[in-house]
């Protein structure tokens, strides 16, 4: 994997676009914006006059809210295409929809789509506007993986008494990351595998056979047969959301059986090493993939992920729209 050393002025379609330096740049810019978020008036004029458009062809209130909050804190104008009520229902093609939004003057299109690759296709059609992939089918969700890794870096630095900003990727060296759940259909998992591997971590996947991706060995990961064994080795556990419809189809006999074999139950949480942390991209199905007490426990970073999501997405918008990281020296 050899990505670019900076996101500056590019699209963000896949986590694979960024090298370790490129990822660390996003984290460090996000640290600066996290500081903004803690101010009494959490707003800077950085992107004043820019138009940020969110095109969510698949509903995701949380991700959209996070991106739009990020854009507003940077003083950008925000246009949201509510696709369910738009011309897409009238048969307009993806290409025409994207061209229309670009013609309205959007500087960046943030796209969520149920089809893998849709943001990449849009990026190839547009003249000048940038594209940020906010989750495409079973492909990738790069901003989620970036904010997960950013949160893990902050939490582990804190635990070690280090300053997160400027710490590079040192906490990830040799870190054991365990990804549990529906890896086959998860865009978060694909972006996480790429992101954590680029940062130097060792990845283990654990899932029922029907939810493991075909040819996972090509991803440069290990596959664990039993969750209990894998948990005791892990420094970071990424619990994936289980779409409950998988429990009634050909993938799983039942949700109860999934919880029994792959749920992060209270008993299993006790197998974790001291200091190990748990992430979840949300929304959680409590009692299925993760027990409520574990989700609300001290190891879980879930609410920090949400808060950091805004800062990381501010950093992504800032860089994609060509902001020089040096501008951030001093106060943004």
């Amino acid at each position: 994997m050899s990505g670019a050393d900076s996101l500056l002025g590019g699209d963000l379609l896949s986590a694979a676009q960024l090298s370790r330096a490129g990822l660390v740049e996003v984290f460090d810019v996000a640290e600066a914006f996290a500081e903004v978020s803690r101010r009494a008036v959490p707003k800077v004029p950085t992107l004043r006059g820019k138009l940020v458009a969110t095109l969510f062809f698949e509903e995701s209130t949380r991700t959209r809210l996070s991106f739009e909050t990020a854009a507003r804190r940077l003083s950008a104008d925000v246009a949201s295409l509510a696709v369910a009520s738009s011309s897409v229902k009238k048969g307009e093609s993806l290409r025409d929809t994207a061209a229309t939004v670009e013609a309205l003057g959007a500087d960046v299109l943030i796209i969520r789509h149920r089809s893998s690759g849709a943001p990449a296709q849009v990026a190839s059609w547009l003249e000048h506007a940038k594209v940020i992939n906010a989750g495409d089918g079973s492909h990738e969700h790069p901003s989620q993986a970036l904010l997960d890794a950013f949160t893990v870096r902050a939490a582990l630095c804190e635990a070690r008494g280090q300053v997160s900003e400027g710490s590079g990727a040192s906490v990830f060296e040799g870190l054991r990351v365990l990804i549990v759940g529906d890896v086959r259909h998860s865009r978060v998992a694909r972006s996480q595998v790429i992101c954590y591997r680029t940062l130097g971590a060792r990845i283990t996947l654990c899932a029922p056979g029907t939810l493991l991706p075909r040819d996972a060995e090509a991803w440069g990961v290990e596959v664990a047969a039993h969750l209990d064994d894998a948990l005791s080795e892990a420094d970071v556990v990424s619990v994936l959301r289980l779409q409950t419809e998988r429990g009634s189809g050909s993938h799983l006999p039942s949700l109860a059986e999934y919880t029994a074999t792959h749920g992060l139950t209270e008993r299993r949480a006790e197998l974790l090493k001291p200091g190990a942390v748990i992430t979840h991209p949300g929304p959680m199905t409590r009692g299925v993939e993760i027990a409520s007490s574990v989700a609300d426990g001290p190891s879980a970073l879930v609410t920090r992920q949400v808060a950091n999501g805004v800062a990381v997405r501010m950093a992504i918008l800032f860089l994609v729209l060509g902001g020089e990281p040096s501008l951030l020296n001093g106060a943004p």
Binding site: S116, G117, D136, G137, S138, H139, E140, R187, R190, P213, R214, D215, A216, A218, W219
Partner: peptide, 11 residues
């Protein structure tokens, strides 16, 4: 179905 479909997230 293979390494590419798996990576691209396409069935």
């Amino acid at each position: 179905e293979g390494a590419w479909s798996s990576m691209l997230g396409l069935p």
